[in-house]
Design a protein around this nucleic acid. Sequence first.
RNA 1: GCGCCGCUAGCUCAAUUGGCAGAGCAACUGACUCUUAAUCAGUAGGUUCGGGGUUCGAUUCCCUGGCGGCGCACCA
Length: 452
Amino acid sequence: MRVAGRILSWRSHGKSAFAHIEDAGGRIQLYFRLNVLGPESFEDLDFLDLGDWLGVEGRLFRTRTGEITVEASFWNLLAKSLRPLPIGKEEVDPETGERIVHSGFADTQTRYRQRYADLAVHPEVREVFRLRSRMVTALRSFLDARDYLEVETPILQPIYGGAAARPFTTYHNALDTTLYLRIADELYLKRLIVGGLERVYEIGKDFRNEGIDRSHNPEFTMLEFYQAFADYEDMMALVEEMLATVAREATGDTTVTYQGEAIEFAPPFERVSFVDALSEGLGEDFREMDEASLRSRAEGLTGDDLEGAGRGRLLDKLFGALVEPSLMQPTFVVDYPVELSPLAKLHREDPRLTERFELFVAGRELANAFSELNDPLDQRSRFETQQELKAAGDEETHPLDEDFLRAMEYGMPPTGGVGLGIDRLAMVLADQPSIRDVILFPTLRPEDGGQG
RNA sequence: GCGCCGCUAGCUCAAUUGGCAGAGCAACUGACUCUUAAUCAGUAGGUUCGGGGUUCGAUUCCCUGGCGGCGCACCA
């Protein structure tokens, strides 16, 4: 029997000693005896520390308490730990069987900063990232099986777009030009639809130069997928099936527990219309309300100054305050007002609305999708409306992208498109309260202040 | 950006009304050949986040700066 691993615990008994080592395959107990190893090898054990990597050969046996153990007939040091790992002492609760860790490694910021140490001492953290990997693999398989082509589009972009967000700005020396880190993949993927790649998807990082909190990291992973000759109804059905499949493949079940709440990913998901949900929250039909009364309701609810916010922004604020927090189970909110959705096609039955849905889970937005706007004239006028809002003081409007319009002018088939936040889905499936718990190296202020 | 809370040994945390800065684990020395939060005896370990103030005396009270956590705002 040969095993290797990192020393996690050590119990020395004079002429014998017990230890636990751990590697990716798990944990095992080691037993060292003077009269098995001989005096030289046994005395050298004194130089070992917790955290060292050890290789061991010996026979397997069961101790008096029943634990499978390797009795070492030979051992060697594979790598030395010069810096003590913050390994907590563990015990198993005799009643519940749960693992209790004493005096562990608790400081969240140090855990994120030194993820290598966090991973080294917390098997449950390693499992979160294994789950995330299974989830991403399942998403790829799901789309690949449906003839989607995985593509890569630019992260460095001369004009950012596809969402309303502040970008990171950078500079290319040889081209002597300003470039932006992408805030969404959308506009490039739609160019590919124009080019005849009828089903495309991309999993990649987007970058938004905005606040950091439990559900926002400046760089985050987004899945976007687009399918020609589909509409938002088709995409809703696809998303339902996708999430049920992915939940099952990543966690083993379509029901997952998130922060104590059971969440059911088996289709069908709840559907509510934006208009109904918001009007119900407000107690009256918002379409009959003027901008001033919407603003006063929104300011009353959120307690902030919304001077200068357009009607779309006010509706969104109200929706965020009145409706979103209650959407625990997977819920499609459908048919958003046109002023909220500059890239979505007008609703086939009501031109004040667009054919758009957002998926909410655990009170957070997980996906955003629409029947893509494919009318270049309408798209141009929507962009122009955005420019007017910008002129009126709205800071996060969609820029006008002439090349994107040119692409659409060649003719874009009717298309359904979806953007899905990978990190947020990972939070739900891995039952993690913060986006930083599902990102290996979340964005932090640089150490030693001023270094970066 | 605003509010609340926090910062003490490598780690997890104490410290009475303002009165010698402590414990457990880790480290080090010793005892112990089926232990498992091993046990037992001992040793060492500190700019109490920085600066200023009040005081005979500050980990403690006040001011100020830094960093962090949580909440809010921002994130259509």
